[in-house]
Write a protein that binds this DNA or RNA. Structure first.
Length: 544
DNA sequence: AAAAACACTTAGTACTCGGTAA
DNA sequence: TTACCGAGTACTAAGTGTTTTT
């Protein structure tokens, strides 16, 4: 996908999450489907009460101490907590915050506090730092951790199918997220269940009984106005089945992908402009694994684009570049995704045509949107949408890359696996900011390798006894230099996203079986949980 | 037919925690 | 015993795609 490089600032959270009293379900299967039944419910969780500032901690306006009213005081702390962060220096962030903060003030306060620059949060900031420090020391006694675990234990599970499951320059930076009240929350549970009690003195927005959706509770968030849900954990049966279905759809694409490719090659010459645009878009989605690119409201979110929302300024066309013919250059300054791709001659010709008489800001594909594209795709194969191509290409790439490798050392096998994984991550443009400590940690590893080498040389010169050590040391050395290679290649690439979302786990499970590599070298605990369905069912001869 | 709402997946950041070096 | 590091995890914004409303 293409990410316009707009600074994404984390929003300021003014949101004690309402830890929902979790509904416990039991399922009874009937011939025509599923009936939900309430099993058990433990009492509601009350968000912690607000604690006013201690007397010796003051907020100053224009050099004078001001005692703030409760809501304003609560909010002020959020800004104070972030003072170390760059965000609080950003114009947009400050403006958004100040506007929302003033809404929480009393009339008097609003009349007094007119300028954020005259506010001094210094003492509040210090108080916060002290608190953080104190909690750090406390954590050894694990009081907090225990308390947290208790909450999770009590409210973090539901029972489905008899299994106990865990539930699962931005324009708006600095805006306040309102605290969620029971009055905002819709509870979804079955009719004959005991409906969870709202906290005393409160009531739910609604209690409904809809077994066609998977969420247990929902509410509307105030910043974007979007819905938020409480859903099941990724390792639940419900999500597992969905995941399995996803990969099965992608596998089915294998049988008709050749025909689809032939078709869009032909469509490149269609007399219909819309058809041609669709063909080029499909070419990008297939070849470059771009995301579909739905439209979204301007000014509401960061300016990121996908295939269908590409604009004229996002690409440059070159007849020849660096010795290659027909090159499309994506990105340049404003986009996070940068890529130079040699393309089919017809594609280039079409792109030229699409860009005629257009200027910066105009849509590249003006006769196409994601709905039309997906409608077309689903007519070619049931269940086919643009995103299926990403899953398909990612998984098939992993499978091909794994086949090519030939080595029998476990350490090197892992490097090969990670390389295959990396090929996919690059395809899907799963980037990450290079870790801040990257250079340092590379240097550390190199130092280790060097010192091992020295030891090795030394050992070689010494007695027979030393030879044994040298052997062990030599293995170790191999391990570390492979690690170093691996890590170096990994600087800007995030492997986790593709592993979690795009690569059919059965490919990896089968590979481990064949290569006699323990599965936990590839999948951590979370992934093993999530892919339990695949681990159970996969034979060594699985082919995607 | 377009827009909005809704439900669910994907993506990346920030934090946590356990192991290890100092 | 402490400090540091990195892998793993939690969290939630930002996507996709379907359904409902206008």
């Amino acid at each position: 996908s293409l990410f316009c490089y707009v600074l994404r600032a984390k929003m300021l959270y003014y949101n004690w999450r309402l830890l929902l009293p979790l509904v416990m379900w039991e399922e009874q299967k009937y011939e025509d489907g599923i009936k939900w039944k309430f099993l058990e419910h433990k009492g509601p969780y009350f968000p912690p009460e607000y604690q006013p500032f201690p007397d010796d901690v003051k907020f100053y306006y224009n050099g004078k101490p001001v005692k703030l009213s409760l809501p304003a005081e609560e909010v002020s702390l959020f800004f104070a907590q972030m003072l170390d962060h760059e965000y609080t220096t950003k114009e947009v962030f400050r403006n958004n915050f100040f506007r929302d903060w003033r809404k929480e003030m009393t009339l008097e306060e609003r009349q007094l506090i007119m300028d954020l620059n005259k506010c001094d949060f210094g003492e509040l900031h210090a108080m916060h730092k002290k608190k953080v420090e104190a909690r750090k020391n406390l954590s050894k006694e694990e009081k907090l951790v225990e308390a947290n675990q208790k909450i999770v234990e009590e409210y973090g599970y539901c029972v489905l199918d008899h299994h106990r499951e865990r539930r699962g320059d931005h324009p708006k930076q600095g805006m306040l997220k309102k605290r969620i009240q029971p009055e905002d929350v819709i509870i979804n549970c079955s009719k004959d269940s005991r409906i969870p009690e709202p906290p005393a003195g409160h009531h739910w927005k609604e209690v409904r009984h809809d077994n066609t959706v998977t969420w247990l509770a929902s509410w509307t968030e105030n910043v974007q106005g979007s819905c938020k849900y409480v859903m099941l954990n990724a390792n639940s049966k419900l999500k597992g089945e969905k995941d399995w279905e996803k990969y099965e759809v992608a596998r089915r694409l294998k049988t008709c992908v050749d025909a689809i490719r032939a078709q869009y090659q032909e469509d490149l010459q269609s007399k219909q402009m819309g058809t041609r645009q669709r063909a080029v878009a499909l070419y990008f989605i297939d070849k470059l694994a771009l995301r579909a690119g739905n439209e979204k409201e301007e000014g509401e979110t960061a300016d990121t684009v996908g295939c269908c929302s590409l604009r004229v300024e996002h690409i440059t066309l070159q007849d020849t570049l660096d010795g290659q013919k027909c090159v499309v250059e994506f990105g340049k300054d404003c986009i996070r995704y940068y890529n130079k791709v040699p393309v089919n001659k017809r594609v280039l010709k079409n792109l030229k045509l699409f860009m005629e008489n257009k200027q910066e800001g105009d849509d590249l594909f003006d006769r196409l949107n994601t709905q039309m594209l997906n409608k077309h795709l689903s007519s070619l194969m049931p269940g086919l949408t643009a995103k299926v191509f990403r899953t398909y290409n990612a998984s098939i790439t992993l499978q091909q890359q794994l086949r090519e490798l030939t080595t029998d050392n476990v350490v090197e096998k892992l490097l090969s696996y990670n390389r295959a994984n990396r090929a996919v991550a690059i395809l899907c443009n799963h980037q990450r900011a290079p870790p801040k400590t990257f250079e340092q940690s590379m240097a550390n590893l190199q130092t280790k390798i060097d010192s091992r080498k020295e030891q090795l040389d030394l050992a070689k010169k010494e007695l027979k006894q030393a030879k044994k050590e040298a052997k062990g040391s030599s293995d170790n050395n191999l391990l570390m230099s492979v690690q170093a290679t691996d890590r170096e290649e990994n600087e800007q690439i995030a492997l986790s996203t593709s592993k979690l979302n795009y690569l059919d786990p059965r490919i990896s499970v089968a590979w481990c079986k064949n290569m006699e590599v323990p599965l936990d070298k590839i999948y951590n605990k979370t992934l093993r949980d999530k892919f339990a369905w695949a681990i159970d069912m996969t034979e060594h001869d699985f082919v995607f």
